[in-house]
Computed example of a mutant assay.
Amino acid sequence: MESTVGSMQEQALKRKERLKALRNKQLHGSSPEDEEPDKKRMLREEEYVEERHRELKLRNYTPEDEELKQRQVPKAKPASVEEKVKEQLEAANPEPVIKEVDLVNLAPRKPDWDLKRDVAKKLEKLQKRTQRAIAELIRERLKGSEVELAGAVAAVKEGEGDSD
């Protein structure tokens, strides 16, 4: 056990030295006598990045030590599926820019559109007169048919009286 602790301390010291060397290079620039092969330098930089990003996160373990309790990650709560589904559905249905498309505005106008517009008011008046005339003709025919109907009923009654 003591041999592993000693080797770990040696590794830590070596790492500290490499970090100091890297910091000095970054601050003062690289000197020609300090240059190392690219592969070795890249390996050392990767170790530096790994060491820097390695942080203890406790997700499933509840520590007793106060210092470690600060590193404990809070328990995640499951997200509401309904909210996510609603958001996705809303995102899938884009709102229409124009609610109602008027085909008259989209299609090019015919050359006589202004004449039709001007005549439309006059045609409305004529349409009303035409409807009135049709109604009068229907009334006259109904009156004529009432007279004929009354004559037909009288003839039927006379025919019934003779057969008695």
Rank of each mutant, 00 (worst) to 15 (best):
A79H: 04
R139P: 00
K128Q: 11
L137I: 10
D164F: 12
W113T: 05
V49Y: 05
R44A: 14
D164I: 13
L106V: 11
K110M: 07
R23F: 11
L27M: 09
E17F: 07
T62Q: 01
H53Q: 13
E158G: 14
L58T: 05
E158W: 07
E10H: 13
L137D: 09
P32T: 09
S31F: 10
Q9G: 10
K25V: 09
V5K: 10
R117K: 15
G151K: 14
E87N: 08
E124L: 13
K86E: 12
E50D: 12
S30L: 14
L149I: 01
I98S: 07
K69E: 06
N105R: 12
Q70S: 00
G144N: 09
S80C: 07
D65G: 01
S30W: 02
K40T: 15
R23L: 14
K110D: 11
K39Y: 07
E158I: 10
P63N: 04
A154P: 00
L13N: 13
G161F: 11
V156C: 09
R15V: 04
Y61W: 05
K157N: 13
S80G: 04
P108M: 00
M1Y: 09
A120C: 02
V147L: 08
K84T: 09
K122I: 11
G6C: 09
E148R: 10
D34C: 06
A154N: 13
K20H: 10
P32H: 01
G6Y: 13
T62V: 10
T130D: 07
M42I: 13
G161K: 13
E33V: 11
K122C: 06
E67P: 04
R44V: 12
D112T: 07
E64H: 06
G6S: 15
L89M: 04
E83D: 12
K128L: 10
D162F: 15
L13F: 14
Q26S: 08
R109Y: 08
E10V: 12
A91H: 02
G161T: 15
L19H: 03
R71V: 05
K86W: 06
A92S: 03
H28S: 07
R129N: 07
V147A: 10
H53L: 12
